[in-house]
Amino acid sequence: MRWTLDQLECLIAAAEQGSFSAAARRLGRAQSAISTAIGHLEDDLDCRLFDRQGRLPQLTPAGEAVLNEARAVLHQCQRLDARARAIAEGEEARLVMAIDEALVEMPPVDNTLEALAHQYPALQLTLLYGAQGDIAGWVEDRTADIGILLSQQARGPLLEGQRIAHLKQLLVVGRNHPLAKLPAPNLTDLASHRQLVIASRTGSEDDQAISARFWRLNSFYSMAELATRGLGWALVPQHIASYPPFRDHLTTLTSEALGVAPRIEVEMVARRDSAQGPVAQWLRQSLGQGFRGRQDR
Rank of each mutant, 00 (worst) to 15 (best):
L41P: 06
G156A: 13
P237E: 07
A275G: 06
E267V: 12
E42V: 07
P183T: 04
S274P: 01
A154K: 14
L95E: 03
L167A: 13
L158Y: 08
Q17H: 12
L123V: 02
I135L: 07
R272T: 11
L49S: 08
R284C: 12
R263H: 08
L283F: 02
A13Q: 06
D51S: 04
Q285V: 12
A280Y: 05
P57C: 01
Q17I: 06
R155M: 14
I240R: 00
T126P: 00
A65F: 01
R26W: 01
Q17W: 06
V96F: 02
K181Y: 00
A22R: 13
S274Y: 11
Q285H: 14
L187Q: 15
W3Y: 15
R25H: 10
A280W: 05
R284N: 10
F220A: 15
Q281R: 15
D273M: 07
R271S: 01
G203W: 08
L226Q: 13
I146H: 04
S204L: 10
F220L: 15
A102I: 06
C10R: 15
T254P: 00
Q153P: 01
R71D: 02
S219K: 09
A165M: 02
Y221E: 11
L170K: 11
S19H: 02
R155K: 12
P185H: 09
L159A: 02
A62W: 04
P245G: 06
T112A: 05
D110I: 09
I34M: 09
A117P: 00
